[in-house]
Nucleic acid binder design. Structure first.
Lengths: 191, 191
DNA sequence: TGACCGTCTTTACATATGTAAAGGAAAAAG
DNA sequence: CTTTTTCCTTTACATATGTAAAGACGGTCA
C-alpha cells in the first residue's frame, strides 16, 4: 500500500496500532484501462485507495450522454461516496483511464473502525470535509469563471492531464463541447 | 433554541448531557432583512443555527456581479463553512432575505466538543457528509438538467420560495438571467 | 507498406440565451 | 391616498456555443 500512510496523515494523525488495524481491511486489485470501479445502479459497498493510475467519474443522462465530473490521479481515495453514505443506487460511474492499482475495503468495516476509535472518526470527518470543500470549489469555479479560465485552472492542478486524458473527457469536465475546447486551445496557442 | 434538538438528531443521537453542554455555547441574535451573516474577506469564527427566516449565500466575481449559490430556510445550520474549515478568508457571503432569528456559537468551542466527545465528532462527520451530498447533488443537477427542470426541482424542494424570494435571486441560483427565467415561467404557465 | 481506427480540428449553420432598454405592475414609503 | 422605488416582463438584437459532418493526423495492426 505504497503511499497510503502519508495519504491518511493528511487527514490527521492516528496511532500506529490503529493504522495497522485499518490496513488489514484492504486487499489489492488491478484494473486495466477502461474497466469500471463503480457502476450505475449498484449499491456501493467498497471504498478504494488508488495507488497508481487515473480514474474518471461521470454521470449519464436519460439519453445516455456522459458528463465527466471528476478526475482521480493517484494517490487518491475513490468510491461511490454518495451511494455509500445514502444506501441509494449509485449514479456516479467510475472508469479507469489507465491501468490501475487499487486497494479496496468494505465500507462497513471502515465504519466499524470509526465507531471503535475516536481518532478514526475524526479522520472520517476530515475526509468528508475535504470532499465537501472540493465540491464547493467546483461549484464556485463553475459560477465564477468561463471555460477558458477553468481550463487553465485544471491544467495548473493536473499539469500532466493533457497528455494523459482525452480532450473530449476534459471538454466534458469543463462543461463544453469538444469543438469549443478545440477553439479555446487554438485561441490560447496564438496568444 | 426552538427546533435545535430535533435538527441535531437528524445527524445522530447524542446524550442529553452532551446536548446540554452543546447548547451552552449558543447565544441568540436577530438580524433584519438584508443584513449580512457572513461577509467577504473575513476569517469566519462562528457557526449559526437559523431558527427562523431565510438566508441566501452568494459569491461575487471580480466585476462585482453576484451569483447566488444556496438558499437556507429555517431550520438550518448556517455559516461560512469553508472559511471555518480552511482558515482562509471567506468568499461566500450570507445575507438575510427576511428578518431572522439565529443562534451563534464559536466554532472553536464546537471543535473542542468534537475532541471531548466521540459522539459529537460523529455528528460533525455526519454534518460534513450531509453537506457534501448536497453539493454533489447540485453539481449533478447542473450537469444533467436544463434550467427548466432545475426550476421545477427547486420549487418542489422549497414550495414557498416563489412568494418569498425575488425572481432575480432564483434566476441567479439557476445559473440563468432574469430574462430567461421569465421566459421559462411564461412557457410553463401556458403548458 | 497500406488500411483502419480513434482522436482532434475545422467549417458551416442553427439557435438558445445574454444584454440593454423600456414599459408596467406591485410594493414600499411618505 | 399619492408618490417613489423596486421588481418583473417583454422586446430587439448580438453572439457564443452546440450540432453535424468532413478532414487531418498519428498510431496500430495485418
Amino acid at each position: 500500500m505504497k503511499g497510503f500512510r502519508e495519504y491518511v496523515k493528511k487527514f490527521g494523525n492516528i496511532k500506529e496500532d490503529t493504522f495497522t488495524e485499518l490496513k488489514t481491511n484492504y486487499t489489492q486489485i488491478h484494473l486495466s484501462k477502461k474497466e469500471l470501479f463503480s457502476s450505475e445502479g449498484e449499491y456501493a459497498r467498497k471504498v478504494g485507495f488508488l495507488e497508481k493510475g487515473i480514474i474518471r467519474a461521470f454521470i449519464r443522462n436519460s439519453e445516455g450522454k456522459e458528463y465527466t465530473k471528476q478526475f482521480f490521479f493517484a494517490p487518491s481515495i475513490i468510491g461511490a461516496y454518495s451511494s455509500l453514505l445514502t444506501n441509494q443506487p449509485n449514479k456516479i460511474i467510475q472508469e479507469t483511464l489507465t491501468n490501475c492499482t487499487i486497494w479496496i475495503a468494505d465500507y462497513s468495516k471502515i465504519e466499524a473502525l470509526y465507531a471503535r476509535h475516536h481518532e478514526m472518526e475524526r479522520v472520517g470527518r476530515k475526509i468528508a470535509e475535504y470532499y465537501y470543500l472540493e465540491k464547493e470549489r467546483n461549484l464556485v469555479e463553475m459560477a465564477l469563471f468561463d471555460a477558458d479560465k477553468r481550463y487553465s485552472l485544471l491544467k495548473e492542478r493536473f499539469p500532466t492531464i493533457e497528455s494523459q486524458v482525452q480532450q473530449y473527457h476534459i471538454a466534458s469536465y469543463l462543461g463544453i463541447s469538444p469543438t469549443q475546447l478545440s477553439r479555446i486551445r487554438k485561441k490560447m496557442q496564438i496568444s
